[in-house]
Structure formats: structure tokens, C-alpha cells
Amino acid sequence: MHELFLTTQISNDDLQRALRILQGYCGMSPVHILRRHLKWEGPRTRTPKGIDPAFIQKQHRDKVPQWKALSEQLGRQSYVLTLIYDVDRGQFGQTSTQSEETNGASQISGCDQIPGILRWSDLPDPAGNRPVNSRLIVNIENEMGLCTVLKSMNHRFSNEIIQECNRFVHGNVIFEINRYLQLPENDTPSSIRTELPPYESLVPFDGDNKWILTASVLVLDGNNPEQMQKGIDELAAVMLDFEGCFNLEKRDRHIFDTRIKF
């Protein structure tokens, strides 16, 4: 699956105005989303192994092609993978009463017990004449036990970040106004938190507290020029509509690099 996208920045002062504009453009109220992003680094080796074929065969038949595609990519190069879990505001600042959650196994099982999304994205394609960024992605959704799976694939948990997102949909184009929030320092930074700190203690990742507006379109088959052109046309139309309002543009592809370098 290919993702075509354009991005721009929005200052925090302009956020409400941007939300109102997109609300009118898309004819919908924004969908507010809070998500935990757990970053997992692949093994630092030049000959990484893909995913165990036996494990892939055990998966639901609809998801086998996605797991195979991911295994193929991870067999060539190590990447940073992201596990995404939906959270709500009420989960922040709640203290857990279970004493056993201090050990590592239960920390992982905490996230394993809820469905999450495994997301892999490649380095975007070289720009060429395309007016948009495009990259290969794999999204395996609604999956349980992903932390254990990544552990078994020799991936190492590196850090965690909170995504605050306002999402709009206009035809095939998805608009997301995102900002990323860092969690305060933890005693054991290499372990997954069992409880989230108070929301007020989160610090914007961007020093100026800017938001990132992304307009994206998903295309099932990136090798099909007709599908790709349709996606590009829709994004180009959006870019034209917002000319003078949002400076949606193609960025340097290396900003979005997720490969492990050593």
C-alpha cells in the first residue's frame, strides 16, 4: 500500500482557525484522537531476518499478505516500527493498583491485551516529477499481542510519544492536524510505561508547539499508474484549493526516514 501525502506547519495560535477552515471544507466536525506511539528499533545488523514464516501462516488469512510484505521489507533492512494504541484523556494520570506491574513481563502484557496497530513506513520515493511525497507503508490493524511479537522479532523498545490528532475526511483525502507530546522522564526509560502521567505534564515535542497538517491519500497498488494518478490528482486539487491559506507541499524525503543506521 502506498501513502501519498503533503505537509505543512501550523502555529498553535492558528490552530482554531485551521480547524474551522477544515471543518467547513470537509463538512464535518473534527474527530479528536489521542494515541500512544511506541517506537521499536530493529536489530542493528546488515543481515536482518524477516518474520518467522510459521508465525505468518498462523495469522488470519486476510492479514497474511500484509505480514508477508512486512517480512520482505524487514528481511532487507532494519527499520523503526511503530505500535499505535488508542487512548482517551481519562487514562492519563490514573495510578495502577496492581503491584505486579513492575516487572517487565506484565508491562508488555498490558499493551498486549489491547488491540493496536503495527505501522511500518519506508523512506519516501525519490521525488521525480510527482508533486507529492509517496512512500510504501504497511498498516496491520486491530492486532493483539504486538509487543510480544516485536520482542520475538528481536526489536527493541526505544521510546514512546503521544500523538494528539484532529482528523477530517474529504473524499479519499484524510487531513490530520497532529502534534506530538513527549512524556516526562521515566526512571526506566527502556521499559514500556504501565500508567500514563497526567496529561498536563506532557511537553510538546516541537519547541514552538507547532502543529503539522498532513493531507494524505492511500493507494492500494502503488504500481498501478491509474490509481496513483487518481490519488495525486485529489491531493493536487486540495493543494490548489488551499493555495494562499495552507502551504501544503512536498518535503525532503529524508525527513521521513525510518531506517536504522549504524
Binding site: 470537509c26 463538512g27 464535518m28 475526511v169 473524499g171 479519499n172 484524510i174 492511500l218 493507494v219 497498488d221
Partner: peptide, 17 residues
Amino acid sequence: NYRRRTQARKPISPSSM
């Protein structure tokens, strides 16, 4: 109609066109 319209659609594919 509103719910269908405001949900993220499936990727562009021959069937989705």
C-alpha cells in the same frame, strides 16, 4: 451518509473507484 462520508475510506483500488 454522514457517518460513511466522515470515516476514513479504504485505499484507492479498482473496487473503491
